[in-house]
Amino acid sequence: MHLTIPKDYDPVLSVRDTQEAIKYIRDTFQKELGKELNLSRISAPLFVEKSSGLNDDLNGSEKAVSFTMKEMGDETIEVVHSLAKWKRMALKKYGFAMHEGLYTNMNAIRKDEELDNLHSAYVDQWDWEKVIDESERNVETLKAHVETIFKVIKHMEHEVWYKYPQAVNHLPDKIHFVTSQQLLDIYPNLDPRERENAITKELGCVFVMKIGGRLSDGQKHDGRAPDYDDWQLNGDILFWYEPLQQALEISSMGVRVDEKALHEQLEIEDCLEREELPFHAAILNKELPYTIGGGIGQSRLCMLLLKKAHIGEVQASLWPQEMIDLCEENDIRLL
C-alpha cells in the first residue's frame, strides 16, 4: 500500500455534491465522446469464457477473477480486465460500417492491483472502438483521435467550471506527442515512471507513443498485451497532476493489430499458440475489421476535473483499514 497526502488538502465539495458532480461528468462526457468520434453506446459483458481468448492480459502478470457456472460445464469464466478484444468482435457482429464505432461502460476487477491514490481493485472506464480502413493504420490517424479526445476533455473542464467553479482543475491547452524511445533518449538516467513524470510536469499533457516493444536499453517502457494494440501505433494520454505531483494516465489507446503485427508480437512474446484461439484466428484470416480504440478511465477523469486526492473519493471500492484511517485524518473522504 502506498498513499500520498497532499499538503493542506481541501476536498472543496461535500460528498453529496461530489456524487452529483460525478454523475454530471460521466453523463456529459460520454455523450460528447460519442458525438465527436461517431460512436454508439452498446451493452457489454462483465465476464467472458477463458477459452475465447477475449480477455485482456494487461501486463501479462495479473490474474483474472474466475469462476464456473452451473449451466456451462467445466468452462472457466473470467471477469474481464478490459474489453479491448471483445469490442472488435462486436463491431463485426453488430454490422458497424466504416468510420462508425461503439462505446460502452466497462467494469472490471483487478485483484492484483497495488493500491494507492490512483489504483483501485475496481476499474471503471469507457471502452471505445471504431472501424477504420486498412490504409488508415498510421500515426496520423492515431494522433487525430488523440487530439479529439483531448478536445472533449478540455470541453468538460469548461462545463465543470460552469457548474462547480470552486472545484474545477484547470488543464493545459495543448497535448504534446513523444515516443517512449525519445523519452529514454531525453532522460537516460530515469526509470519509465520517472520519465513520464518529468515530461508531463514540463509540458502539462503528453501522449506517450509506441509502448510494448523493447527500447534501445533492452527494456520495455511498459508492458502491453501482444494481441490488441499495434505496439508501433499506440500510447497513453498523461496529464501532470499537481495535487499528487505526478503524471496521471487518463487513457490507453491505439490502432489495433492487423494480421502481420499480431503474428510478429505473438512471436516476440513467445505465445504463438494463441493463434489457434477464435479471436486471433479471425484476425489472421482477415475476418475482423481494422480498428482503432481504447479505454478512458471514468474515475480518473472525475479525479482530474475535480482535483481529488484519491480515486476512492470518486468511486466505491475496498481499501486497507490503514489507508482508510489515514484518509479520514487528512479530510480525504472515501466513498
Rank of each mutant, 00 (worst) to 15 (best):
M253T: 06
E202Q: 10
A84K: 07
L238D: 11
E113F: 12
E134V: 09
K31V: 07
E113L: 08
D127K: 06
L183D: 09
G254F: 02
E322D: 15
E269I: 05
M106H: 05
N55C: 06
K87S: 06
Q19D: 05
S252G: 13
H158Q: 07
W161I: 00
V65I: 07
A64N: 12
A316R: 13
V208K: 10
A21G: 09
E114I: 10
L3M: 08
D133W: 06
L335T: 13
Q166C: 04
I292Q: 01
E287C: 09
Q245R: 08
L203Q: 15
L184R: 00
L33E: 11
L54P: 14
D217A: 01
M303P: 09
E328N: 15
V80Q: 04
E20V: 11
H155I: 04
L288K: 01
S216H: 03
N105I: 11
G235I: 14
G235L: 15
T104Q: 11
L215I: 10
K92L: 07
F47G: 04
E194D: 15
D230L: 02
D27C: 07
I311Q: 00
V255C: 14
L284T: 09
G223V: 00
V79F: 03
R41W: 09
H155K: 12
Y24G: 03
E287L: 14
A44L: 00
G101N: 01
N330Y: 06
K174I: 13
Q19F: 08
E287Q: 13
F29H: 05
V178Y: 10
L244I: 04
I22Q: 10
M89S: 12
M253S: 07
V168N: 12
Y164P: 04
I237T: 07
Q30R: 15
I199P: 08
L304F: 05
I132H: 02
P320A: 10
L284W: 00
C205L: 09
H280M: 15
S40G: 05
S299H: 04
R300V: 07
G235Y: 02
N285E: 10
R274H: 09
G60N: 07
E100Y: 07
V12F: 03
R333K: 14
G223T: 02
A64C: 13
I283S: 11
K220V: 06
Y241D: 14
M72S: 14
K31C: 00
D124V: 05
D229R: 03
I237S: 05
E276N: 12
Q166E: 13
K143H: 10
D229A: 03
N197F: 00
K7W: 06
L184I: 05
A90L: 03
G297R: 03
L334I: 14
N38A: 13
E322L: 02
R214T: 13
G60D: 06
I153A: 09
S252F: 04
L334F: 01
G293A: 06
Q265M: 05
R88P: 06
E202G: 05
E159K: 10
I109V: 15
K70Q: 12
I250F: 05
D27S: 14
E269L: 01
S216I: 06
P320F: 00
G218R: 04
L301N: 10
P6G: 10
L272A: 01
I332G: 10
S43M: 10
E275D: 04
L233D: 05
E136C: 02
K307A: 15
S180C: 00
V257I: 12
V131H: 11
S61A: 15
A97E: 11
F67R: 02
